[in-house]
Amino acid sequence: MSQQTILYDAPGPRARRITLIGSIVAGALILVGAYFLVYRPLDKRGEFTMDKWGPLIDPNNEYFGQLWQRIADGFQATLTAAALAVVASLLCGTLLAMARLQLKAMARRRYVGLPTAAALLLRALTVALDWISRIFVEVFRGLPVVITIVFVWLGLPAAGVDLGNLLWYLVLGLVLYNTVVIAEILRSGMEGLPSGQREAADAVGLSTGQTIRMILLPQAFRIMLPALISQLVVVLKDTSLGFIIGYEEILRVTSQIVQFLNNQIQMYVVVGAIYILVNYALSKLAGYVQHRLARGRRARNLNGGGAAPEPAVAPEVAAVPAEPTDRA
């Protein structure tokens, strides 16, 4: 916020007056426009009648209880898919990030002391694995999630694998994509740490694996926590794609209700609001975590002497450790 007020002087009485008058005039114009362009056409189609809204807001309506029950069921299905996908992709993503760092370190190793043939073989193997993991990441990062999900849903049965419940196809599709994204988040977090961390670990004799597990990963998790929570929002939003493969999450349920009650605009407004509410809460949580982390770091810097300069970068950018200024 403080960054932005630098762009202009605090408005004086005259500017404030102009703003106020302008806002009132513009607001009136917008209201008039909305009346003619939005309200009238919708009203003509009867979109504001109790016929269409009743099942959603009138407890005495015959469909009210049933409708909200179905929405709750659908929402629960959405949350189930999201939770499974998040846990699985966090797990796989962490493993993938560790594997990639390990492979990168191993690809540089020369295996001195082993017979030449064995050394060459080991090197070829690690380099090949390194490339495979890199291609895996590039491919799944570049594919639309819809395509991954549809691929899994159509491709696995075609290949003779039946997962049974539609939920698993959706989760698998989501996990494939988010594993790669989370792995990349964690990897950039680990590689962005000050090189002194790694050097110190080397100096006390930790192996590469131990360094990653005990030194780099915990710090990367902490730094990247806001990014990881934002990814949670993305997963929750992407579960709505289960709609396409017929998984009965909230959007699918909604479209079924719409076919019965013929009130699509009303239903989608309500479901959209539910999504916004939940995701907004999650984003707020991410912001809060980020704030906490930033405060903790700043305090430590001050204690260590030499106050850190206010970062010129926005907090969102600063969280990505392009320039790890502290702890150096």
Partner: peptide, 17 residues
Amino acid sequence: NIPLTIVFFFSAFGLPA
């Protein structure tokens, strides 16, 4: 905070309305 799917719904069914 809204899924793109819902935005598509609105533009494909809301705009004609």
